[in-house]
Amino acid sequence: MEIEKKTQGIIMLISVAGFLLAILCGYGALIYLGPEKTLGDSYRIFFFHTPSAIVSLLGFTGTLIFSVRYLIRRDVESDIYAVSTAKVSLVFVTIALIMGSIWAKFAWGEYWNWDPRETAVLILWFVYAGYFALRSAIDEFDARARSSAIFAVFGYVTVPLAYLSTRIWASLHPVIIHTTGMNLEPRMVMVFVPMIFAVLMIYISFVWIDGRLKKIEYQLMEVVE
């Protein structure tokens, strides 16, 4: 209980700091930075679209880790966090998809271009939608947790594929992050990198809140039964 209280405090701090940082970076992206040479003002959505995409991919990696942990340990907690990370990541990747297609309309002329990365991320979206479909179709707790954990391991192939898609196939998406550094102006990096951390902090607090809620629900179910 003591540890629970302590983590609660840390998470509170992370979420508040995350929101404040996001507001600050939002100001940076929308007001502080000037319009870009070729894209004009439309490029500002980059500071929201890309961090949520990056964080969702990191989040699905979390789903993989918790799923493998469930298969090894068979504990309720791993299953709960596998679901929470998948759920919040799915929301974030949906946001990234919607923002991306709005930006594509301005930058490339059409909402949807079947660009390799668009396709790969859409497939990833279907994988994790399928993950929840699979979970909703199995009633028994152990079978549900086990099947969905195995499926999460299979489905994870789409995550590196989504990340590498611009490098494997010719894509409209630019490659931003290289091994040697970032393909951005220094002023943009100053907004972009903190924004990733802000979104990540918001992500972590959402996962923690959702996971805790599920844990309480589970305990309640045990008491009722």
């Binding site: 279907f126 939608a129 399928g130 699979l134 028994e140 489905g155």
Partner: peptide, 19 residues
């Protein structure tokens, strides 16, 4: 994975095609 699921015929393509 779908052996114990409800409406598994419907679920199978949902989880297989994206993978």
């Amino acid at each position: 994975l779908v052996l114990r699921a409800r409406s598994r015929e419907l679920l199978a393509p949902l989880i297989m095609f994206p993978v």
